[in-house]
Design a protein around this nucleic acid. Structure first.
Length: 481
RNA sequence: GGCGGGGUAGCUCAGUGGUAGAGCAAUCGGAUCAUAACCGAUUUGUCGUGGGUUCGAUCCCCACCCCCGCUACCA
């Protein structure tokens, strides 16, 4: 089986923050899970580098746009490396492979007969140097940022006949050929489609730092469409047909809930227009607040995942984000909560269990051969088996909950059998039975945590495979006070 | 305004027509192999407000209050 998973491509105007790390970690876990399972897996992430905002930001720092995005995209690569993200490809929309693919894509679109030229009437804000939505205006009808009324402007653009795709999309979504999860988001998309779709302008006249429309040099390609196409350009669309056919369609696009319409309406309609298959699933994750407040530049409360993982380790960040907030729902991120989880689950839970188990084996039963088969707990087997299914269904928090319940079974088992008492009575056989059983739970748990906590998995594997078995020199997770 | 989701222990949430549960936090006890970690017990709740149906509602109905999302072309 092949498995193709993508993240959104992040806008390099800002540095990576915890919010962009979130879907990236989720995608990484999924990709690792499928790789372990033996699926032929491709995990794509990347950055979006075109647009007027980028051009303006570059100008503000006195750089050429290209060198600006060259610098900024590196921040993302560094952040992902720190967080243990093992992507298979990292696409940048300013790469020539992307530009070439997008050009092909637009030629195909034009040939499809789904494009036409028309006037686009909109509210143009001079301060923004861009069109502004009516809903964005303040109560006086002014631009909230620039305090002046926008001009009603018309410009000639190329349009895509999105309005003709309502029935098509509805059918694909309700039939499940295009899955949208969680279900709230699916309903949202369906109700949006029911209101009637309008055609969309796919080119711009005033945008800066964007790809040219292949047949009309006065227009640039609407950057959103340029960006959406990354999912295809990265896997060789129009260039390496074998590669493209191997991976497309995507098995899942992981996206933020703010961009579902681009992914669930515009994107599938465009794909249909050029005769390509639709992605199988779009999964929208929720947003989180920081200490109950929205993440915003003006509050300056954006959290740098690199700094955070220097304090707690990247595995702890991965664990926290996926365990504490059900994937698909909104949540809150606070340093206190992270510490609580870290201490309760990682230090006291997993770390301490490993420590006490290996220590007892070293002290009481150094002769124990843990590679001999033992009767294992059926409860643990069930919990871990379900954890696998939950992971595959992107229910990461429940999967981790199951795994941690298995750890609880092990702790209880130790408590019930009290190996230290048996040791006083020299009941070696009994101790061996208990400790071998606990050890087998650790082995099983270690396998299940591999996609979530890759660093810990590597450390624990070393500990569990060492012969003779020794207690860890350093705690897996040192408690934080 | 329209459509949709939600208001349950300090926190995050689950839940059913018969007067409420989990995890974390807190308190007490046990244990001592372990990262003062582990195990057990316990506490707290007018289950948003006011009505209604019912023998009985947190769960059904009505009204109201509050919060959140969507209501397209900034990405």
């Amino acid at each position: 089986m092949k498995y193709y998973v993508t993240t959104p491509i992040y806008y390099v105007n800002a540095k990576p923050h915890i919010g962009s790390a979130y879907p990236t970690i989720a995608a990484d876990v999924l990709a690792r899970w499928h790789k372990i399972k033996g699926d032929d897996t491709f995990f794509l992430t990347g950055v979006a580098e075109h647009g007027t905002k980028i051009a303006n930001s570059a100008e503000a720092t006195g750089q050429a746009p290209q060198s600006f995005v060259d610098t900024n995209s590196e921040y993302f690569k560094t952040a992902w490396e720190t967080l243990g993200i093992q992507y298979d490809d990292f696409i940048r929309t300013t790469e020539s492979r992307h530009a070439a693919a997008v050009t092909n894509f637009f030629k195909k679109l034009k040939e499809s007969g789904q494009l036409y030229e028309a006037e686009y009437a909109g509210l143009y804000c001079v301060g923004h140097e861009a069109f502004i939505k009516e809903s964005e205006l303040d109560e006086h009808g002014n631009c909230p940022d620039h305090g002046q009324p926008p001009e009603k402007t018309k410009e000639k653009n190329w349009f895509f006949k999105l309005s003709e795709y309502g029935d098509f999309l509805q059918e694909k979504i309700t039939s499940g050929q295009l899955q949208i999860e969680p279900v709230e988001r699916k309903n949202e998309v369906l109700s949006f489609i029911e209101q009637g779709l309008e055609d969309i302008a796919i080119s711009r006249r005033t945008a800066k730092f964007a790809l040219p429309l292949p047949w009309d040099a006065s227009q640039t390609i609407y950057v959103w469409l340029d960006e959406l196409f990354n999912y295809c350009s990265a896997i060789g669309y129009g260039k390496d047909e074998a590669k493209f056919n191997k991976w497309w369609p995507a098995d899942v696009h992981i996206v933020g809930k703010d961009i579902i319409k681009f992914h669930c309406v515009i994107w599938p309609a465009l794909l249909e227009a050029i005769g390509e298959k639709l992605p199988k699933k779009v999964f929208a994750h929720g947003f989180f607040t920081i200490d109950g407040q929205k993440i915003s530049k003006s509050l300056g409360n954006a959290i740098d995942p690199v700094e955070l993982s220097q304090e707690y380790g990247s595995d702890a960040i991965r664990y926290f984000l996926l365990r504490d907030i059900p994937f698909g729902k909104d949540g809150d991120f606070s340093p206190e909560r992270l510490k609580e989880r870290y201490n309760a689950d990682l230090a006291n839970g997993l770390g301490n269990l490993v420590s006490r188990t290996l220590n007892m084996i070293e002290r009481f039963t150094p002769e124990l051969d843990p590679d001999l088969p033992v009767a294992s707990s059926t409860l643990v087997q069930k919990l871990l088996y379900e954890a696998g299914i939950l992971t595959e269904n992107l229910d990461f928090s429940s999967a981790l909950e199951n795994i941690w319940q298995a750890l609880g079974v092990a702790d209880k088992w130790i408590e019930d059998n009290k190996p230290w008492e048996l040791a006083k009575q020299n009941k070696t056989k009994e101790i061996e039975g208990t400790l071998a059983g606990i050890f087998s739970i650790l082995v099983a748990v270690n396998n299940q945590i591999a996609p979530f906590l890759p660093e810990t998995h590597a450390k624990l594997t070393k500990l569990l495979e060492a012969r003779p078995i020794k207690k860890p020199q350093e705690p897996l997770f040192a408690r934080k006070s």
